[in-house]
């Protein structure tokens, strides 16, 4: 496979080098400044590599900006999919295909499966989020106490935590992992959901 998106050029985007335009360390890979990156390649294997590059860029971008969800129509206008300096953007159809690929990998899931207008972005897997939350509970001596979901995602105590501001549906999923592990119990209903940790 000798494509321009071959692994030797792309790497796995493990190291994200600063882009030319900004002084602050940027999450954009050098590829972001490469115009063909924004156009889907007809060659299947090249497209696979291109797709992989896009998915790691999306995860890195969402992590850096603490974005829990991407709404396609809005996101396509942001710098993530639209390189204003180059005047290039990823087409809606191609973006959907990238996200579908990511959904298969468990990196995102569709908010509405039928319309595919947006996704939850899992730059940490639900299992990882579960562990992060549980570690926080454990280290702050809150085992055995009852917390509301709002308190975990938006409370004053969690502002310094990575999961602060987490989208509610995603938080439920992460807590669901802990319930399965037997270290948490979700109770209450509707708006008034709470969780007890063990």
């Amino acid at each position: 496979m000798s494509s321009i998106f071959g692994n030797n050029i792309l790497g796995n985007n493990a190291t994200l080098v600063g882009s030319s335009s900004s002084t602050a360390p940027s999450i954009f890979p050098p590829l972001y400044d490469f115009p063909p990156f924004f156009t889907r390649y007809p060659n299947a294997s090249t497209w696979t590599a291109q797709r992989a590059a896009w998915s790691s860029l999306i995860l890195a971008y969402c992590k850096a900006h603490k974005l829990w969800q991407l709404h396609l129509s809005d996101a396509l206008e942001t710098e993530l999919f639209h390189n204003a300096a180059l005047g290039r953007r990823l087409k809606h159809q191609d973006a959907v295909e990238v996200l579908e690929f990511m959904a298969k990998e468990g990196q995102v899931d569709w908010i509405d499966e039928s319309n595919k207008t947006g996704v939850n972005v899992w730059w940490k897997k639900p299992e990882e989020w579960g562990s992060v939350i549980f570690d926080w509970i454990d280290s702050t001596g809150q085992k055995g106490s009852v917390l509301t979901l709002y308190e975990i995602a938006h409370g004053d105590l969690t502002t310094a935590q990575e999961f602060h501001g987490m989208e509610e549906g995603m938080l439920k999923k992460a807590l669901g992992v802990l319930v399965k592990r037997g270290s948490a119990q979700i109770f209450g209903s509707g708006e008034e959901m709470g969780v007890k940790f063990f």
Binding site: S145, V146, L147, T148, Y150, E151, Q185, I186, F187, G188, S189, G190, E191, E192, G194, K196, F198
Partner: peptide, 26 residues
């Protein structure tokens, strides 16, 4: 109350605390 089949690990006290905390959140 409790749409979910919650186990007996949740006591009435827990529910009371949850109610208070929900009010606080509101």
């Amino acid at each position: 109350m409790g749409a979910l089949p919650s186990s007996n690990r949740i006591s009435a006290h827990d529910r009371a605390v949850l109610n208070l905390k929900v009010q606080r959140d509101k």
